[in-house]
Each structure stands twice: as structure tokens, then as C-alpha cells.
Design a binder for these strands. Structure first.
Length: 480
RNA sequence: GGGGCUGUACGCUAACCUGGCAGACUACUAGCUUUGGGAGCUAGUUAUUCGAGUUCAAAUCUCGGCAGCCCCA
């Protein structure tokens, strides 16, 4: 910890607030490469927490971790037509080794389907080899030309990429709910983020997939961002990469495949949603420091308060990620402000009063509530409860915001109005790409996804644009 | 993809228009005094984004690169 400048803007000035909070909290920093940021210890801790949780969950369902090369030969990369069309505009290429030009360019992976499936084709021969369920933790590069925003639009980002291969179509399809469930679980219980789960439209689906599913998340400025996703690739890649096997009947069959990912972008969304005018608010499960203990003393009480506060620290540190902020060159007020900017979930103030009354004065970051509890054997339980309440409270606030932002619209004028109002327009849609594209052209709003739990709302309704019979319910929103 | 704005120390900013000693606050280092919501004093450390041009002289004018931000598609 060290002394600090505060942020100089309010959250209502969202872009400026967002960058200032991220940099001044010392979670992230700009680097010498445009669009590539540095994850500092407290920022990387958040990613490590996400990683740890998901890694365990994946392994429990039978997925194994692997690691494939960063570089992909151009020939491989071009094997699946839709895939290469979708990604080639933003691929970074390696063209030289030292001073000599390479015979074949090497792509820095924007995603690893092609190089993984090239190997998988060699490994899969029999129905007994399946399912083959692989995952890798790595970073990828997508050379965006729009101006980058830390975490939300980075040229390099960290992610998991799950690549699974099945003999059976049903079995492949059943994986969807398991994976989306794991993603939704970490969003809700760790990051305190509510999302909208649904299917992407044809226009917005992953390049090379048969169907894509996503959890869409909402930023404070009303823009939607795609969070974790899951793609059913069907046999598109297995045919392009020749992933086939002999089934029990002795016939050759192409395998069925899925792809899924969660990226560091969710960290950006989490910080954006929960923060306030004082700075960031980090949910306790992913905060490197969960509790900061700030001793308050004067010359007379210094020795005993410091001794007492380090005892408080010793009591807490086995169960919580606690930090004793006992540097005496800063005033308590300055430490309060710094810890608020950094989003530390709980602060415990320890001074003469606490010492005399044998209590703990605890202040919640999420709602500024000041709580005094007895410093006895039950204190740890109560603190544990408080941490859980913070996650829940952050989630509920975010959920309320999300739900109040979704407006079901009955006609096109209403849709335009809702989009203009920076909200999410939920509408009945016939399924025709033309309507979807015209809506985007008229309003700049994209279809985010077709929420699973809203599909019945469009029964017996007409398409919001063309008035033909509706097949789906779609969310339209301005997006990142 | 199109248009606009901005780059001075960790951060924020002055000097720029009208070329001529780069100044304040903050941060950082040391010392003393302080400490229940951004403490004070003293002494120090640190900067003109990069390259080219114009000029006796460039932070300042011109051109280009790089970087950041905003708006439109």
C-alpha cells in the first residue's frame, strides 16, 4: 500500500471514471503496447480466482487441461472457410525469424480451433477415443482497430478455451447446459454479476459454429457486452480437419464438437458495474485483500493500539485475506480513502475505543454501513456473514439494474425509443436476417441474444419490424 | 471505416496564442512535529511523447510517427 491520488471524476462520466479507477486502484496499468494491459498483483488475483474455480469445475466434469503452441501455420488456419473469414481481419502475423523471412507466415492464435483440431484428427480413431474433452488456459491476440479499452476491448486477453469432441450429437448438445451453468455460477457467486443467457442469432454467431450461446452482461452506461460463450460446432470443423472415427458398427463417422470460453473481459464488466464515485468495489471472493485493518492512535496510545491491532490481525488472518495497514506516515483518513478507491470489501477500524470496549468497528465498502461487533469467538462467523452479504447485495443491485433496463417492446417506434434511452429492447422477431440488419442500421443496436427464459413472450406476436409471425424473442441493445 | 480533440515530473496542471531562465499543487526521499475521514514545517528528487523541418534560438510554429480520449458508421 502507498499514498494515493483519488479519482477526479464521478461515475456518471463513465469512460473517464472507468479508466481512472482501474489505473489508480493499481489493479491494472497501460503498457508500452497499445491495447495490451498489465495485470498488476491485485488485478491478476481476480483472474486467478476465476481460473481456480472454473478449473476445478471443469475437471470435475471430466475435462483435461492441455497446452498448444501460440503460433499457427497459415495453411492450417485457412482450413475452415467461415472461421478464417471471421478472424483473418484481426490476426497478427509472425513473418520473420531473426532477419530471414519465413516461408510460411505464422498466425499468433486469435483462438486455437485449427491447431488443436489438426492434432485431434490424429488422436481420434475409434469411438473408444471419445469423448475427448480438452481445455487450455492461455492468452490470444485479436488485432482490433477500434480504440482499445482496458479489459473490455484488449488486443491481447486471457481466457480459457474449451474444445470438446464427441461421437454422439446428443451427448455434445448436453454439454451446453453444464458449461453455461459453471460460467453462470462464477458470474453470480464470485463476481456478483447477473447475466442474460440465450442463443445468438445467425448473424452474430461464432465464425464456424452451427449455433452459439452466450451470457450477455450490462455495463452502467446501458451498453451490453458479451460475457462467456458456448458454441456448438456440429461437424463443421470435424469435416474440415478430418476428425473421424469408426463407430461400434464399423462405419466411419465425423465427430461432433463444442467450443467455449470465458475471458478477462468479465473482470472489466464486474469493476464497471459495482464501482461508485469513491472508486472500485471488489466482491470479497475475488479481492486479494478482503479485510483491511486500520489502527487509529496518537502518541500516547500508539504502542498499545498497534499491539492490539496486530492481535486482531493475527486472529483474522487464518480465515480471511487480511491486511494490517499500520504504516504510520499516513493519516487514517488518507488510508480510508485509498482502501475505498481500491475496493477492499471490509475495513476494520481499531483505536482506543475498540480496545477499551473489546469491540470491532467494521465498515462495509458496498454500502458504507458501520457495524460494531463484540470481539469474541463469534466475530469470525459474523465477518464471514458480512462478506457473503456484500456479494449478495452487489448481485441484487446489479440484477435490479439489469431487470429494470430490459423493456419488452410491442412496436418499432417503441423499440427505437427504448434504444435511444440506452436500454435493452426485448422484441418479437420473425427470424429473418433482413429485419435484424435493418434494426441495426436504423438504431445502431445489435441483437445481443435470444434469452432462453423469454421465448414464450413472443408466442402469437408479430415481428417488431416486418409484422410477420414471430418465431423468437430477441434482445436488442447498443453493445461494445 | 469516417471525423474531431489531446500529449509538460507518478498524477493534475502553468508557460504555448505573441518562440528567449520550464513554475505551482500532488506524489516520492530524509528529518522533526502530528494521527477517530485526504496533517504541518524544513530540505531534497523527478518533466516538455518521438522524429524531421523552420530559426541565432522550439514545450511553443510546420510536417510526420507513436500513444490516449471523444463522436459518427
Amino acid at each position: 500500500m502507498s499514498g494515493h491520488d483519488g479519482i477526479s471524476v464521478k461515475k456518471s462520466d463513465f469512460s473517464e471514471w472507468y479508466t481512472q479507477s482501474l489505473i489508480k486502484s493499481e489493479l491494472f496499468d497501460y503498457s508500452a503496447v497499445s491495447g495490451c494491459i498489465v495485470f498488476r498483483p491485485d488485478g491478476y488475483f481476480i483472474w486467478e480466482s476465476i481460473q481456480k474455480f472454473i478449473d476445478i469445475e471443469f475437471k470435475n466434469t471430466g475435462i483435461s487441461n492441455v497446452y498448444f503452441p501460440l503460433l499457427i501455420p497459415e495453411k492450417l488456419f485457412e482450413k475452415e472457410k467461415e472461421h478464417v473469414k471471421g478472424f483473418s481481419p484481426e490476426v497478427a502475423w509472425v513473418t520473420h525469424g531473426g532477419n530471414s523471412k519465413l516461408d510460411e507466415r505464422l498466425a499468433i492464435r486469435p483462438t486455437s480451433e485449427t491447431i488443436i483440431y489438426d492434432s485431434a484428427a490424429k488422436w481420434v480413431k475409434s469411438w473408444r477415443d471419445l469423448p475427448l474433452r480438452l481445455n487450455q488456459w492461455c492468452s490470444v491476440i485479436r488485432w482490433e482497430f477500434k480504440h482499445p479499452t482496458p479489459l473490455l476491448r484488449n488486443r491481447e486477453f486471457l481466457w480459457n478455451e474449451g474444445h470438446t469432441i464427441f461421437a454422439d450429437k446428443q451427448e455434445a448438445q448436453q454439454e451446453r447446459d453444464v458449461i453455461l451453468g459453471i460460467y453462470n455460477n462464477i458470474l453470480k457467486n464470485y463476481l456478483a454479476l447477473p447475466g442474460v443467457i440465450g442463443q445468438k442469432t445467425e448473424t452474430e454467431k461464432f465464425a464456424g459454429a452451427v449455433a452459439s450461446y452466450s451470457i450477455e452482461l450490462l455495463l452502467p452506461d446501458g451498453k451490453m457486452v458479451q460475457g462467456p460463450d458456448f458454441h456448438s460446432d456440429g461437424q463443421n470443423f470435424s469435416k474440415a480437419f478430418d476428425i473421424k472415427f469408426l463407430n461400434k458398427e464399423g462405419n466411419t463417422e465425423y465427430a461432433y464438437q463444442n467450443t467455449f470460453a470465458i475471458t478477462t473481459r468479465v473482470i472489466g464488466i464486474m469493476l464497471a458495474i459495482h464501482g461508485d464515485d469513491k472508486g472500485l468495489v471488489i466482491p470479497p471472493k475475488v479481492s486479494r485483500i478482503q479485510i483491511v485493518i486500520i489502527p487509529i492512535f496518537n502518541n500516547e496510545t500508539k504502542q498499545e493500539v498497534l499491539a492490539y491491532s496486530s492481535k486482531v490481525y493475527e486472529d483474522l488472518k487464518s480465515q480471511f485475506r487480511a491486511y494490517l495497514y499500520d504504516l504510520d506516515i499516513y493519516s487514517p483518513g488518507s488510508k480510508f480513502n485509498e482502501c475505498e478507491l481500491k475496493g477492499i470489501p471490509l475495513r476494520i477500524e481499531v483505536g482506543k475505543r475498540e480496545m477499551q470496549e473489546n469491540i470491532l468497528t467494521i465498515v462495509r465498502r458496498d454500502n458504507s454501513e458501520k457495524i460494531k461487533i463484540k470481539n469474541n469467538s463469534d466475530a469470525q462467523n459474523q465477518i464471514n456473514n458480512l462478506l457473503d452479504q456484500i456479494t449478495l447485495n452487489l448481485y441484487n443491485k446489479a440484477k435490479e439494474f439489469l431487470e429494470s433496463s430490459i423493456v419488452f417492446v410491442d412496436n418499432y417506434d417503441e423499440l427505437k425509443k427504448v434504444i435511444l434511452d440506452s436500454k435493452i429492447a426485448q422484441a418479437a422477431w420473425c427470424g429473418d436476417e433482413k429485419c435484424e440488419k435493418q434494426i441495426k442500421a436504423d438504431t445502431t443496436a445489435k441483437s445481443t441474444n435470444m434469452p432462453f427464459d423469454a421465448q414464450n413472450k413472443s408466442k402469437n406476436k408479430k415481428c417488431v419490424y416486418c409484422n410477420k409471425n414471430a418465431k423468437y424473442t430477441v434482445n436488442f441493445a447498443k453493445s461494445y
